[in-house]
Each structure stands twice: as C-alpha cells, then as structure tokens.
Computed example of a mutant assay.
Amino acid sequence: MAINNVNNGLPKAPVDNNKVNGQQQPQQNKTAAQQAAASTAQATNVPRQDSVSLTQSAQQLNQVQKKSAEAPVNQEKVDKLKKAIQSGEYKVDPQSLAKKIARLESEIFGFKS
C-alpha cells in the first residue's frame, strides 16, 4: 500500500534533537513518578481474598454428611447384607421401601405425611 502526498509535497523539516530530548525527559520523569506511585499503592493495598458461601440446602447436606460419618457402623450386618445381595438372596419389598423413602424425605424437608 502506497501513501501519497505526505506533508502535502513540502520538504521534510529537520528534527531538532535537543528539543526532542528535552520533551522526553519530563515524560520519563513523569513515568518514573507514576511507576513509583503505582508500586507504593500496590504495596499498601491488602490482597483481595476469595470467599465462598453455601446455600442453606448445601449447609444442611454438609451437616447430614458429618452426622453419617460419625454414626456407628455394624460391620457384621453390613457384611451379611453384602453377601445376600451378591448371592441374589436379598429381596426388596417395594411398598416398605417407598414408605421409608417418603418418611425420610418428610424428615429432611419438613413435610408432614
């Protein structure tokens, strides 16, 4: 891409290096002052800390998990149930299971059945 008619055909004016150097130093000093001010501001700023908040449901779930972790486990009964399930001897009563699930949900969520 060609650029035509730069300076409207007038000869290029010579650059006065003294004038250019005189203009650059105040800018450099200003830049150094700005950098010093910025570094001072950064040093005095307290780093931002992240935070997390949990919903009420998440807090309740966390409490339930803690309680279940602390609950005693009858390992003998667990082993018996595992063997019965693996061998196909364990049978589930669907109506009894549905009633127990409904009761548990009503206890957790505060519904009355």
Score class of each variant (00 low, 15 high):
Thr55Ser: 07
Gln56Asp: 11
Met1Phe: 03
Leu97His: 12
Glu89Gly: 09
Gln27Leu: 13
Asp50Met: 10
Pro94Trp: 00
Leu81Asn: 10
Ala33Asn: 14
Lys80Ala: 04
Asn8Ile: 01
Ser57Phe: 06
Lys112Ile: 04
Gln49Asn: 10
Thr55Lys: 04
Gly110His: 09
Ile101Gly: 00
Asp50Val: 09
Gln63Lys: 10
Glu70Cys: 10
Ala38Tyr: 15
Gly22Val: 08
Asn74Arg: 11
Pro94Val: 00
Ala84Trp: 11
Lys67His: 09
Val73Gln: 12
Ala69Ile: 04
Lys112Asn: 13
Pro26Cys: 01
Ala37Arg: 15
Ser113Leu: 15
Met1Cys: 04
Ala84Asp: 15
Asn4Ile: 07
Thr55Phe: 00
Glu105Pro: 12
Ala71Ser: 11
Leu81Ala: 08
Gln35Asn: 12
Pro14Met: 00
Lys19Ser: 05
Ile85Ala: 15
Asn5Ile: 03
Gln49Phe: 05
Ile101Pro: 02
Gln49Trp: 05
Val92Asn: 03
Ala98Trp: 00
Gln75Ser: 06
Gln42Val: 10
Gln25Arg: 14
Val92Ile: 05
Ala69Lys: 15
Thr55Met: 00
Glu89Ser: 13
Glu89Val: 08
Leu10Arg: 15
Asn8His: 09
Leu81Met: 13
Lys30Gly: 05
Ala102Ser: 13
Val20Asp: 06
Asn4Tyr: 06
Arg48Ser: 08
Val64Gln: 11
Glu89Asp: 14
Val92Leu: 05
Pro11Phe: 01
Lys99Ile: 02
Thr40Phe: 10
Ala33Ser: 13
Thr31Asp: 14
Leu104Tyr: 01
Glu107Val: 01
Asn4Met: 03
Asn21Thr: 09
Gln24Cys: 06
Val73Asn: 10
Lys67Ala: 02
Gln42Pro: 07
Ile101Val: 10
Lys19Gly: 02
Lys112Val: 06
Pro11Met: 02
Ala102Phe: 01
Gly22Cys: 06
Asn29Ile: 07
Lys66Val: 01
Gln24Pro: 03
Lys67Gly: 01
Lys30Asp: 02
Ala84Pro: 11
Ala32Arg: 14
Leu104Arg: 09
Asn8Leu: 06
Lys82Gln: 15
Leu104Pro: 03
Val15Thr: 09
Ala98Pro: 06
Lys12Val: 03
Val15Asp: 03
Ala32Asp: 11
Ala84Val: 08
Met1Tyr: 04
Lys99Pro: 02
Thr31Val: 12
Asn62Ile: 00
Asn7Asp: 08
Pro72Ser: 04
Gln28Ser: 08
Ala58Tyr: 09
Phe111Cys: 08
Ala58Gly: 09
Pro94Leu: 00
Lys66Tyr: 10
Thr44Phe: 13
Val46Lys: 14
Ile3Tyr: 01
Ile108Gly: 01
Val78His: 12
Asp79Leu: 13
Val64Cys: 04
Phe109Ala: 00
Phe109Asn: 07
Val78Thr: 11
Ala32Ser: 10
Leu104Asn: 05
Val15Cys: 07
Gln34Ile: 11
Ala37Thr: 12
Lys91Glu: 02
Ser106Trp: 03
Phe111Leu: 14
Lys83Val: 14
Ser106Ile: 07
Asn8Val: 01
Phe109Ser: 03
Ser57Gln: 13
Lys67Asn: 09
Asn18Ile: 05
Ala58Arg: 15
Phe109Tyr: 13
Arg48Thr: 07
